[in-house]
């Protein structure tokens, strides 16, 4: 049993208290047109950073996971510390279905969605509802592109 459903959202219309993590990152990206500057550290802790890839039929490889990133909360510290060796989440369906938002953020800078999915975790399959933001960042000197993912988990319960 697996599923992934998503509904596009406008981050400017989200509740700024409930989704402060997503709204603040969206504001930062819009203000800087995606360019990383000295204030990036204020947002890094909530981000999962991914390298840029031409092929976005699956999620791009993860290169760093912030200490408060939603992926770290969901998949654990051990997984986060192992991303250099295995730079992906443990859920193949999520890797495939979530890729659409990366493609959208490549075109539009930001992609925000309310998602409902069955996610494979260490303790089994979980039903999760979460708001997620995928943003495209670029480095200041060489304009290298990379993606940042931030999520707010609204529901997380074990299915089996």
């Amino acid at each position: 049993m697996s599923w992934f459903e998503s509904v596009p959202q406008n981050p400017e219309l989200l509740d700024r208290d409930k989704f402060s993590v997503i709204v603040s990152i969206a504001d930062y990206v819009r203000f800087n047109d995606g360019e990383i500057d000295e204030y990036f550290h204020q947002y890094y802790g909530n981000l999962t950073l991914c390298a840029n890839r031409d092929d976005l039929t699956v999620c791009p490889p993860i290169i760093a996971v912030g200490s408060n990133a939603s992926t770290r909360q969901v998949f654990g510290h051990k997984w986060a510390e192992g991303i250099i060796q295995n730079p992906a989440t443990p859920d193949p369906l999520l890797e495939k279905e979530a890729a659409v938002a990366y493609e959208k953020s490549r075109d539009e800078l930001l992609a925000c969605e309310l998602c409902n999915a069955a996610v494979t975790c260490d303790d089994g399959l979980r039903s999760m509802t979460f708001m997620r933001l995928v943003a495209q960042f670029r480095t200041p000197v060489r304009s290298r592109k990379l993606f940042g993912f931030a999520g707010v988990v609204l529901e997380n319960r074990l299915l089996n």
Partner: peptide, 12 residues
């Protein structure tokens, strides 16, 4: 061009 990523990672 990665200075702020590395700094952010270490500060976090």
């Amino acid at each position: 061009g990665l200075e702020w990523i590395a700094v952010a990672w270490l500060m976090d």
